[in-house]
Amino acid sequence: MRHAPVDLSTARWRKSSYSNSNGGECVEIAEDFPGLVPVRDSKDPHGPSLLIPAAAWTAFVASLKDPS
């Protein structure tokens, strides 16, 4: 199943709150894309982006916060 391309040209990217001032290995996400979470490498802002289903992103973040 193919979906229509998502235009990220106006995306407002937000860097991880765990990012430090050295840049490091961080990701950025964009909000305001219903049902999707665009993700990109903060060191390569013009490189490719991943489009993650919002439910999968929520589960991923929750698994990172789970201490078990």
Rank of each mutant, 00 (worst) to 15 (best):
S16R: 05
S16C: 06
S16I: 02
S17T: 15
S17E: 11
S17W: 12
Y18K: 00
Y18C: 01
Y18Q: 08
Y18H: 13
S19L: 03
S19D: 03
S19C: 07
N20T: 14
N20Y: 08
N20F: 08
N20M: 09
N20Q: 14
S21N: 12
S21Y: 10
N22C: 09
N22Y: 12
N22K: 10
G23A: 12
G23N: 13
G24E: 11
G24S: 11
E25G: 04
E25M: 01
E25K: 00
E25F: 06
E25H: 05
C26I: 06
C26H: 06
C26T: 05
C26V: 07
C26Q: 04
V27D: 02
E28A: 00
E28N: 00
E28F: 02
I29V: 15
I29H: 02
I29N: 05
I29E: 01
I29Y: 00
A30V: 07
A30C: 12
A30P: 05
E31L: 15
E31F: 13
E31G: 11
D32A: 15
D32P: 00
D32E: 15
D32T: 09
D32Q: 14
P34F: 12
P34G: 08
P34C: 05
G35A: 11
G35K: 08
G35Q: 04
L36V: 05
L36C: 06
L36N: 00
L36T: 05
L36R: 05
V37F: 09
V37P: 03
V37R: 00
P38E: 08
V39R: 01
V39M: 12
V39F: 07
R40F: 09
R40I: 08
R40D: 04
D41L: 01
D41K: 03
D41I: 02
D41Y: 00
D41A: 03
S42M: 04
S42P: 02
S42K: 03
S42D: 10
S42R: 02
S42T: 11
K43N: 09
K43V: 01
D44L: 00
D44C: 04
D44K: 07
D44M: 01
D44T: 06
P45D: 11
P45I: 11
P45N: 13
P45C: 10
P45H: 08
H46S: 13
H46C: 01
G47W: 06
G47F: 07
G47P: 00
P48D: 14
P48N: 14
P48R: 15
P48V: 14
P48F: 15
S49P: 03
S49D: 03
L50K: 05
L50E: 00
L50C: 03
L50G: 05
L50T: 02
L50M: 06
